[in-house]
Design a protein around this nucleic acid. Sequence first.
DNA 1: TCTGGGGTCCTAGGACCC
DNA 2: TCTGGGGTCCTAGGACCC
Length: 421
Amino acid sequence: MLALADCNNFYVSCERVFRPELENRPVVVLSNNDGCIIARSNESKALGIPMGAPVFQIEEQLRRQQIHIFSSNYPLYGDMSDRVMNTFEASVPQVERYSIDEAFLELSGCNEEERLSECRELKARVRRHTGIPVSIGIAPTKTLAKVANHHAKRHPDCNGVFELSDERKRDEVLGATGVEELWGIGRRTGIKLRRAGITTALELQRADITWVRREFTVTGMRTVLELRGEPCIELETAPPAKQTICSAKSFGQLIQEWDPLASALTAYLTQAVDKLRRQQALTSAMQVFAHTNRHRRDDPQHACSVLLEFPPTDYLPELARRAVEGLRPHFREGMRYQKAGVLLLQLIPRSHRVGHLWDDLEQLEKQDALMSVMEQVNRRWGRRTLNLASAQDTRQWRMRQHRRSPGYTTCWSEIPVAQTG
DNA sequence: TCTGGGGTCCTAGGACCC
DNA sequence: TCTGGGGTCCTAGGACCC
């Protein structure tokens, strides 16, 4: 039997661990550049703060209702996530880390009673170890576990844990679930289903399978089978290596000159190469792009993008040179660029590097040594201690983060200090 | 002034092969 | 008028997820 464990309002909960006075108060967390709302406490939801709302549109409401606002602090959330996941992994036989705040678990309990108590104990342990509240939904398939989890969150009498295996109970809950609330049914498919007269999860579960297959491809069919209790989506305990790595961001302010754009590009590439090396992979192609802000109707619009190919490598200085030189001819003077990024493509495991007679092995070793030293220094002394010079001047593109919380668990100088008396 | 970032999977259609 | 039957590989685009 599977379970989906999901941290409640995760980013908000992370902030509250270190600011307990914000318990029971409305709190929101903003996206990069303090652009829009990406996490809300229950109190903020109750006050009608919509998910994804641009901050500038609801600024007045946020102030009037005295909602506490945080910029996002991804190093903190990533670290808290690791702590939660480690607790799961120490407690159940199998864990799939599904996202920063969710995991699918395989449970050992043989009957509903055992599984419920197993999960209640787990929920309490995570709270004790990390301060983060979680909800757990139990079911025979991932899709049903998602439904069970929603139910656990919405019904306080469940105390955050709910099992959906009994068929009668299952169909009753599915009958009360809107079809677009299901995992795998997005906005488009939801509209299409409603047009076909299918409005609840139960109606979808009972739909004709060949019709579903024809209209909604195998993905839709899998959803239906999973709703019937037939597992189609396996637990993935060892995540497959990524096929592409992307690093892209909006700038803190619009950029009109090449130098700061090149600087931002180098910084984003640094992050991408970091992930590449952690995955022990090499890249042999990358797409580099930049574009203006399409929301600004009055600004002239421009999007440029270039695809570069080269022998497999993970050597940052060379990749940075290629990215910058590659995009340079496409950059247009005077445009107001809003965002840039890189995609690393054609990834291969580092162990598959094919040597050529004309490879300069000594050169490759030197490059490798340099990258390793850079990583060690940065691990020891903090991110970006050692950096490419061109990525160093962040003044013109650095993210806006006016309300960022300290790196309580991720930065030596920001660790909270406890005082007595 | 102000609208996130990072991914995956699936299908259709074209090119090409025997 | 007639115009095989498979198969692979690649790409673009749609849809979805958190």
